[in-house]
Simulated assay, not measured.
Amino acid sequence: MPAGRPETIKAVPVRHPGRWVGGIVVAVLAAMLLHALIFNPVFEWDVVRKYLFQQSILHGIGVTLELTALSMLMGAVGGVILAVMRLSPNPLLSSAAWLYIWVFRGTPVLVQLVFWNFLGLLWQRLSIGIPFGPAFWSESTNTLIPTFVAALLGLGLNEAAYMAEIVRGGIQSVDEGQTEAAHALGMSRARTMRRIILPQAMRVIIPPTGNETISMLKTTSLVSVIALEELFQAGQNIYSHNFKNIPLLIVVSIWYLFMTSILTVGQYYLERYFARGSNRALPATPLQKLRALFVRTPAAAPTAALPPAEGAPHD
């Protein structure tokens, strides 16, 4: 070996016994779960297959998706309005928004659903007219607010309170200099919010909004207490007649997992879209990650060795 060159280092890989133990424990638990799923007769997978695409189950899925979409739309619009009111310098507007958020976040959504379903006990008729004066139009409360509308009001108005705090956090994450620059250009407060602040705040708003959407999909199961047949209620109606409780609960769970998985993928691509202006490189999509497992990236070409500097020793 040439003089002056250090000896070759014999690298010994660091051992991680904890990883092996953890992996073995997880593998054993997974094998036990798989064995139970296959050989436990209570699961009755033939019953699961029979009712997976049953008509009432599919109808319940439609009601669940409709409630989720409309409730989130109501919550998103109401949340933006409440967030702007909360940040308003007008004390009446900010106090009213704070009171709304306090009431709807402080009471269970289950109580709110039942309350809206029994609104006719408070006011038998709803009317439009001059405040404290004659009414121009009047209609029965139970006619105006059937079960589906009661469920929509309970879910959507409750969601607006949570979305208000999410939107407020997103708005406050934008640097104040953006607002000052917009006002210096003569833009109104409303146009500044619409054209400058909200587009930048979306990067912060989208992730928790996606979580709220997934949570809303599952929260719709609570409307079964007011006898609205969504997915969970449809499953309940079937197993109350055939007493196949576990198989029908598995059917319902499979559909919930399927729908939440689709929403999760949609949330990922939406976050990726709004991250374009903040990240140097966008995160890989699931398809790109999957392709990377099977397609080997070509290695970079070796760089040519530079000639030794003048007077430098040669080997």
Score class of each variant (00 low, 15 high):
131 P>S: 04
291 R>D: 10
275 A>M: 13
279 N>G: 02
295 V>C: 02
209 T>A: 14
159 E>W: 07
308 P>Y: 06
128 I>G: 03
68 T>M: 13
272 R>D: 03
46 D>Y: 01
249 L>N: 07
133 G>H: 05
233 Q>D: 07
209 T>W: 13
299 A>I: 08
27 A>V: 10
75 G>W: 04
232 F>Y: 14
108 P>T: 03
229 E>Y: 13
48 V>S: 00
135 A>W: 09
102 W>P: 07
54 Q>L: 06
161 A>Q: 08
258 F>N: 04
179 T>Y: 14
123 W>A: 15
128 I>M: 11
42 V>C: 00
285 T>M: 00
55 Q>R: 13
149 V>Q: 13
277 G>Y: 07
45 W>R: 00
184 A>H: 05
36 A>V: 09
104 F>S: 09
176 E>Y: 08
76 A>V: 13
104 F>G: 08
269 Y>L: 10
26 V>K: 01
65 L>F: 06
182 A>W: 04
232 F>R: 10
37 L>P: 02
275 A>L: 14
18 G>H: 07
68 T>Q: 04
171 I>D: 06
187 M>E: 02
83 A>G: 07
249 L>S: 02
29 L>T: 10
315 D>Y: 14
282 L>F: 00
69 A>S: 11
165 E>K: 12
229 E>T: 15
273 Y>P: 02
8 T>P: 09
169 G>I: 03
285 T>R: 00
287 L>H: 09
249 L>Q: 08
52 L>V: 01
224 S>Q: 12
114 V>P: 03
63 V>E: 06
315 D>M: 07
83 A>F: 07
262 I>E: 01
159 E>S: 12
296 R>V: 14
268 Y>V: 01
166 I>M: 10
99 L>N: 04
184 A>D: 05
27 A>N: 03
79 G>R: 06
52 L>E: 03
261 S>H: 09
142 N>V: 14
48 V>E: 02
113 L>H: 02
108 P>Q: 01
271 E>M: 06
51 Y>K: 00
280 R>F: 13
123 W>R: 12
214 I>Y: 06
84 V>K: 09
33 L>A: 13
232 F>E: 07
300 A>K: 12
256 Y>I: 03
290 L>E: 09
279 N>A: 12
158 N>R: 08
197 I>V: 15
181 A>M: 09
176 E>D: 11
234 A>W: 00
164 A>D: 10
132 F>Y: 12
287 L>V: 15
